[in-house]
Amino acid sequence: METVKRVLVTDRAREVIERLRAEHGELMFHQSGGCCDGSSPMCYPAGEFRIGGSDVKIGEIAGCPFYMSRSQFEYWKHTQLTVDVIPGRGASFSLEIPLGVRFIIRSRLFTPEERERLEPVLGGES
């Protein structure tokens, strides 16, 4: 039985990620918990944002690990997230900002059937 992904990416966002990867190398995402630009997915060069024991990896998008804090995950664990991109400049330190776009999250609740097949969540790295 196929597992259900907790985080997805749109084709438009994937194109931006590939452009950023070509310029910055390997990337990672961390779902902001409300600092700076609200609750936005933040893109960083891999290893630039320190992941700790209070973070969980909920999946990968376009080959990039996607993390969020364990406490935030408790609120969102019943929700499938989709990373998209829209025109406009956010107020964050995320790599896409100089391109005149910003990553956003779209979400929906998992069905009861999907909840039984969710990808596992991995604890943070020290």
Rank of each mutant, 00 (worst) to 15 (best):
E125R: 14
P112M: 09
F49L: 12
G33R: 07
G124D: 03
A62P: 05
E60F: 06
D55G: 08
M42P: 02
F29K: 10
Y67I: 04
F93L: 11
C43L: 10
F49Y: 15
G63N: 09
G53N: 12
V83C: 03
L109F: 11
S40Y: 05
G63A: 07
L8Q: 14
F49D: 00
E74V: 00
I17N: 01
T79D: 01
P41C: 01
S32V: 01
R14M: 06
R12K: 15
A22I: 02
F93M: 10
R70A: 13
C43N: 02
Y44E: 04
E74Q: 14
V121S: 08
G90M: 06
M42G: 04
G59S: 09
S54K: 12
M68D: 05
A91Y: 02
I104Q: 11
E48K: 13
P98V: 08
P65I: 07
G34S: 00
R19V: 04
E113S: 12
V4T: 13
A22N: 13
E125A: 10
E26R: 14
L20Y: 01
C36H: 13
T3N: 09
I51T: 08
G90E: 05
R6Q: 02
Y44V: 02
G123P: 15
R21E: 12
G88Q: 06
C36F: 11
L8Y: 07
R89C: 06
E114R: 08
L8R: 15
V4P: 01
L8H: 10
M68A: 07
R19W: 01
V16T: 07
R115Q: 13
S54N: 14
L8A: 12
E15K: 15
R14K: 14
E60A: 13
L8C: 11
V56L: 09
L95M: 03
L81K: 10
H78I: 00
E2Y: 03
I104K: 11
M42V: 11
P45E: 14
F103H: 06
K5H: 10
M42Y: 04
E114P: 05
P112T: 08
M1C: 02
S94H: 03
Y44K: 00
G52S: 14
D37W: 03
L27A: 11
V7D: 02
L27H: 07
S54T: 09
S92H: 05
E119C: 13
F103Y: 14
R50I: 11
C36I: 01
I58E: 05
G123E: 15
S71K: 13
I104M: 09
A13L: 00
G124N: 03
S39D: 08
S71V: 12
Y44F: 15
G25W: 10
T111A: 12
P45A: 13
P41V: 04
F93Q: 09
R12E: 13
Y44G: 00
R6G: 08
K5W: 01
R89S: 10
R21K: 15
V7W: 02
E60V: 04
E23C: 04
S71Q: 12
R102V: 04
I104N: 06
C43Y: 00
F73I: 01
R108Q: 11
P45S: 13
L109K: 14
K57V: 10
G59P: 05
S32T: 08
S39F: 03
S54I: 11
Y75R: 13
F66I: 10
L27W: 10
G25F: 11
L118T: 07
L122N: 05
F49C: 09
C43R: 02
P65E: 08
